[in-house]
Design a protein around this nucleic acid. Structure first.
Lengths: 242, 242
DNA sequence: CGGACCATTGACCATAGTCAACCGCCGTGG
DNA sequence: CCACGGCGGTTGACTATGGTCAATGGTCCG
């Protein structure tokens, strides 16, 4: 499977593409890039001329704080397009890095813009993707602002597990998630210590276990209830053709 | 000035539009709607067939929590397009309501989609707008997750004041902002009592005063420093033509 | 073996939440 | 006209959640 096919699968999950669209997308140029754990792909302040599609592994976006710390904003699985926004916003307002080893493929902006002009359906599919991204951000606002530590943690796991499952990355209820507890803290706005303690609570109450980069979900229903997780915001139902 | 011109001004702030684009946008149908304070325009779960552009007043997006409470997600000034996302995501994952009296104009989706196909430049301008929205969401994640109560409050005021100024709504350092303290709390993920106490701190330290629906900024520099506010994420520089 | 990194634990502390009462203002209706 | 109720804002007292600090253990790797 060519790297770009990962994107195709993703777009096809929510947008109706025609054969010609698919053909055109396959003809985009695409330079594959392997990122080592923690490596930045783009940095806050950059003016990228290409956008990366995740092919393998996990990629994250983050803000750098005045204090030097980080606020992780979102995570991206294969098929996602973490910096699609750079197509229309010149300067990056955040950075994108690999979490664990990751493979991305970079597609030049000018080719994409040209393609979008020719085939609006493709533009709409990618646009939709960026809107789903925004929806995930909104949920993160709600999660980090109005839920307590345990619920917050459960919700994050729900989202990642759910998305990983859709991407075919879950096997026997296990998802390889190479996050550290510190990173989870920087995602949810809680301290490392608090993350650790709430992980233990999750373990004790049985629904989920996160250890050594593996997320094990023992009782999905219970975890989803605990995390107040409702996947609607991921907009994964295939939209009916109008 | 026709209602739709408010949108034109906004788009022109960040995107280069040609004369024909402008002409076409002016010909969109647009049904004006007056909303009373607190009234919903769309609700979580709806399948809207038209999108609203804010013409006057303030409009907010919010999630409804399991507990029945609210999490406000973003605020929208004249020219903004709070539910542009509904163009490509069928089901609303949040609601949109008026904060104070507001006027919006609703444009039917099918006309827009048609226009986007014909004139990609317009599509790109609106797309850019939705991406700026997403950037504002990201900043909200960071604000609500990694800053303390006072900083958080200051940052919110900075953003609203900055955007209001750009929209020409600030006169003599005063911006009419019809929020209640409870709503501010539901925006920043803090309790009403804490909002109240931190408002007093802001007042005492002089940079800003919020009272009776009026935001007075006495010392912008100080407020921006206190709120760790850097307007880059609003992407307001006119993008150079490529 | 030493060091780096991650996870874990305990003790203490501070920020912000909760609860409750009270004030002032305004619009409504007796 | 005034009484009342509701809403938004303010204050004090208490509490609890989660943060900070610091020490320790385990594992991997050079």
């Amino acid at each position: 499977m060519a790297p770009i096919d990962v994107l195709l699968n993703k777009l096809a999950q929510h947008s109706p593409l025609e054969f010609d669209d698919i053909k055109r997308i396959r003809h985009l140029s695409c330079s594959t890039q392997v990122l080592s754990s923690g490596q930045d792909f783009v940095r806050q302040g950059d003016f990228p001329r290409a956008s990366a599609i995740v092919v393998e592994g996990l990629v994250a976006r983050y803000h750098t704080l005045e204090s030097g710390g980080r606020q992780y904003l979102s995570y991206h699985l294969p098929g996602d397009w973490p910096d699609a926004q750079a197509l229309f916003l010149e300067r990056m307002d955040h950075s994108v890095c690999a979490v664990g080893r990751a493979v991305v493929c970079a597609v030049p902006h000018n080719e994409l813009i040209e393609l979008f002009c020719e085939r609006p359906t493709i533009a709409f599919a990618v646009w939709r993707q960026t809107l789903i991204d925004a929806s995930i951000f909104r949920e993160a606002i709600t999660n980090n602002s109005s839920r307590d530590a345990l619920t917050r943690l459960a919700h994050l796991f729900c989202e990642l597990y759910f998305r990983a499952k859709q991407a075919g990355l879950v096997k026997a209820n296990i998802y390889n998630l190479p996050l550290t507890q510190a990173q989870i803290g920087e995602t949810l706005g809680m301290s490392l210590v608090s993350v650790n303690r709430n992980l233990q609570r999750l373990r004790k109450h049985a629904p989920a276990d996160f250890k050594a980069g593996k997320l094990i979900v023992r009782d999905w229903e219970k975890l989803a209830a605990l995390g107040e997780f409702d996947p609607q915001y991921l907009h994964q139902q295939l939209r009916a053709k109008k």
